[in-house]
Every structure is written in structure tokens, then in C-alpha cells.
């Protein structure tokens, strides 16, 4: 029985975790390797690093970060943020990342998905999608550039196309739910998981313990990503897994 995955997400800027992380007993609160090790100890199933570095040293900084993390943390690592080419993917995979997540670059150049999948295998290419409900057209729109730019794409159709092009997993953020702490967007994930047969990771909206069981049960997703509830110690991964076990969801 495949376990459902609980995935903390870390925003990294110039080699430091940017958003506050203040759960207990960390010597250096902004160090990615230190934080990653703490999450491993808590029982995280995977980690996602989102590179938010905006300067030219971008690539070098994130590669050094991943090298450091991969030398002491032994679980799957996904890296996203500003990946534009197969070379970008390769340098991150060489540094120790297991998967690379493409978002805006795949929207403007869908062939990037196929190129990455052919070179490294589909399992290394995660298609990240930022989706927002459009009440007028009654569909989920895809946004690019960190949610700043609306695209003509329909999220469900884009997800299907991405899988056809070679994506081995989808990491889908609900922009409507992100930051609200009102639960994951169940409707979005139900539609997505009916449309594709690759693993889907839900992101955005997690605020309480029962949100996890709900998105696994009703959204049929394979992993649930969360940032602030873990970073601020509002929930621990142990708490989440204990609750999921009670709800009959398979966890590690």
C-alpha cells in the first residue's frame, strides 16, 4: 500500500530559507540543511524547495543549497523556481535533487517538459501549476510568473497536456486557497485526479489537522504540501500522520 505523502515546502533565497521558520530546537533557523534535517526527523516524506532568489547568482546559490541538503538529508528532494532549460534541470539533479518542477517556463515552452522527460525520465519532471477559479467562465485558469500573469490555459486541460508531454507528477497550487488556511481546494483536486493518472500533490489552504484527511479522502491526491503550519509549529508532521492513521489514510 503506497503511503500518502506529507511534504513541507521551503522558500529559499540566496541559500537561506526565507519565510520564517521557528519550530523548536533549531540552532540556525534560516539554514536549509538544518531545517531539512529537522523535517526528516519529524517524518516528512519529501521536501520541496522553491527558489525565490531574484538575482544573477540564482543558479549557483540554489545548487549549493541542494548539495548541502543532499549530503545529510536522505529523502526525495524536489526543486522548483526559475527552471528554464534542460541544463537547469541537469545541474539541480546532479547536485542531488530527485525531481525538478517547471511552471512558467513550461507554459511558454511546453517542449521543455518533453525534453526533460526524455533526458532524465518522467519521474524527474514535475509540472507545477498555479490555478485560480474563474467564476465567469466556470473553469480553473492557469497563472504564470508566480501567479502574477493570467494565461489562456485551462488548468485541467493543461494538466492533461503536461502528462501527455511527459510530466511524471503534478504539483498544483490553488491560488484561491493559498494563505487562507481554510482547507485545500477539494473540487480542483477531484477534477484533476479524475483527468490524469500520475501522482498529484495538493498545495495551498492547509490550516488545520483535518484538512489533510479531507484532501486525501475526497481530493484523491497523493501528497499534501504545506509551509507555514509546519514552519511555525502550529502542526507537526507527527500530529498530521497520527490524525491520518485514525482516519484510515495510509501513511508511513
Amino acid at each position: 500500500m503506497l503511503a500518502k505523502r506529507i511534504i513541507p515546502c521551503l522558500d529559499v533565497d540566496h541559500g537561506r530559507v526565507k519565510k520564517g521558520v521557528n519550530f523548536i530546537n533549531l540552532k540556525d533557523v534560516g539554514d536549509p540543511a538544518e531545517i531539512a534535517a529537522a523535517y526528516q526527523k519529524q517524518g516528512a516524506d519529501e521536501l520541496v524547495f522553491l527558489d525565490i532568489t531574484a538575482t544573477n547568482e540564482k543558479r549557483k546559490a540554489i545548487i549549493e543549497t541542494i548539495e548541502k541538503v543532499a549530503s545529510r538529508v536522505f529523502m526525495p528532494l524536489t526543486v522548483g523556481g526559475g527552471i528554464h532549460s534542460v541544463d537547469d534541470m541537469q545541474s539541480l539533479l546532479k547536485a542531488g535533487a530527485d525531481k525538478t518542477a517547471v511552471n512558467s517556463a513550461a507554459v511558454s515552452n511546453p517542449a521543455l517538459i518533453t525534453a526533460g522527460a526524455e533526458k532524465f525520465g518522467s519521474q524527474c519532471v514535475v509540472l507545477a501549476i498555479d490555478a485560480k477559479w474563474n467564476a465567469a467562465s466556470q473553469q480553473y485558469d492557469v497563472y504564470a510568473n508566480g501567479g502574477r500573469k493570467q494565461t489562456p490555459l485551462n488548468a485541467i486541460e493543461w494538466a492533461k497536456r503536461g502528462v501527455e508531454l511527459g510530466a511524471g507528477e503534478l504539483l498544483v497550487t490553488s491560488m484561491d486557497k493559498d494563505g487562507t488556511k481554510s482547507g485545500y481546494d477539494i473540487d480542483l483536486y477531484r477534477k484533476l485526479t479524475e483527468a490524469v493518472n500520475v501522482p498529484v500533490i495538493a498545495s495551498g489552504g492547509c490550516g488545520q489537522l483535518q484538512d489533510f484527511a479531507e484532501v486525501f479522502d475526497q481530493g484523491n491526491v497523493d501528497g499534501a504540501l504545506a509551509a507555514s503550519v509546519f514552519h511555525f509549529g502550529e502542526l507537526t508532521i507527527e500530529d498530521v500522520k497520527a490524525d491520518l492513521r485514525k482516519a484510515g489514510v495510509a501513511v508511513r
Binding site: 503506497l2 503511503a3 500518502k4 519521474q123 500520475v198 501522482p199 501528497g223 508511513r252
Partner: peptide
């Protein structure tokens, strides 16, 4: 779903010092 991606539980079918420690354990 395919790929088979994530942590899954090993079930031993044959005693072997190499595999015994993995019985009932999750691997990635």
C-alpha cells in the same frame, strides 16, 4: 497511478539476512 512514486511497504516472502530488516518497512 503510474509512475509508482512514493513510500511503499516491503513484504518479505523469503527469509534472507539481506531483506529481513526491510519486512514491513516503507522505502521510497
Amino acid at each position: 497511478k503510474v509512475p509508482h512514486m512514493g513510500w511503499d511497504k516491503n513484504i518479505s516472502v523469503k527469509a534472507d539476512p539481506l531483506a529481513d530488516g526491510f519486512d514491513g518497512q516503507f522505502s521510497y
